[in-house]
Simulated assay, not measured.
Amino acid sequence: MVDDGDVPDRIVSYRLADGETRHAEAPRSFFIPPRAEREALRPGDYAKLLFEVTNPEPSDPGAERMWVQVLGVSDGGYVGALVNTPRAITTVGLGDRVDFGPQHVIATPGDWPLLGKKAFVSRRCQDLDLRPRYLYREDPDNERDSGWRAMVGDESDDEINNPDNVLLQDLGFLLDRWPDLKPVLQTDPQNGEWFWNDDSETYVQGAPG
């Protein structure tokens, strides 16, 4: 909490950024959890919010990413308490109340060690923003390798065998971009194949027919 006797030199206010709008504007660089996950928070859970500075000066950050702990669920949103100390913003402090909605949540705790491991990903998935429609897991090559391989699904042998056509990415980055992958990755460390089914709009285990 900000001490009443400690008056800041300048009042620095904030507004909560709409993460859904940010994601829609930059879907390949601003990732947010699936809506269902953002709507299912319960007291005790944590959520990261983007606090935009409304009156920044050149030396100020444009925004601060900070965590809040959910204290309760309100109509269409949450009541939380800030668990970080702002660096620039002066109108909210550690422990202060923050009201927010699912649209403001830009992250939830990611303590899954798997997400820091690497996956081989078709370059076309990244360059053309194409969903990986075929995934498989094999025994990892080393400790950093997750064993996961994510492909567009129509690659030729020549394309796959050319190292310039394959990227090494964190699984966390891949999951941020394609949240539908979560049920697939939760099967880890099971080896197998999964493909995207257009009819069900889900990943289905097994090789495509």
Rank of each mutant, 00 (worst) to 15 (best):
D99M: 10
Q186L: 14
P179A: 03
A150I: 00
Y14R: 01
G72S: 15
P132L: 00
D127F: 04
T187E: 15
T90K: 06
A26M: 08
V68I: 14
Q69I: 15
Y136E: 04
R144N: 08
E64P: 13
S74W: 08
D18F: 00
Q103N: 12
R28S: 13
D3T: 05
E155H: 03
A63C: 14
W196R: 02
P113Q: 05
A63N: 09
L114P: 00
L16D: 11
S59H: 14
S74G: 09
L94N: 12
G44P: 09
N197H: 15
E159V: 02
I89S: 04
R177F: 06
D111E: 14
Q190P: 06
L168C: 13
G206P: 00
V184G: 00
V204N: 07
G147N: 02
E64T: 05
Q205K: 11
G76R: 10
E52R: 14
E64H: 12
V2L: 14
F100H: 06
R42K: 13
E201K: 09
F51V: 05
R137I: 02
Q69D: 10
A81N: 11
E138W: 01
L114F: 02
P208H: 00
V152F: 02
R35S: 11
H104I: 08
V73F: 09
L49N: 06
I160Y: 11
H104T: 06
D199L: 08
V98W: 01
H23S: 12
D129M: 10
V70T: 13
L115D: 08
P179C: 10
D154M: 03
R97H: 14
T21D: 08
G72A: 15
Q69L: 15
F173D: 09
Y78A: 09
M1H: 06
R15W: 05
P102I: 05
S74M: 14
F30I: 13
L174F: 05
R10A: 13
E193Y: 12
D9P: 03
E20S: 10
G209C: 01
G110M: 08
R131D: 09
L171T: 01
V121W: 01
L114C: 03
G62H: 14
E193M: 13
N165I: 04
R133F: 03
R149E: 01
Y203G: 00
N142I: 11
I89K: 03
H104P: 01
Q186E: 15
D4G: 02
S29Q: 11
T90S: 15
R22Y: 05
Y78M: 12
G44I: 05
L168E: 13
G209D: 15
A47L: 14
V53S: 05
V105T: 09
A150T: 00
F195G: 02
G72N: 14
V79F: 07
G80C: 09
G153V: 04
G93F: 15
N162L: 09
L82S: 08
R28M: 13
R137L: 09
N162I: 06
V83Q: 15
Q205S: 15
N197R: 13
D158K: 06
S200C: 08
R15T: 10
N165G: 08
R124N: 01
G5M: 04
P132G: 02
D180P: 10
V121F: 03
V53M: 06
A119Q: 06
F195T: 06
W196A: 01
R65L: 15
P183R: 04
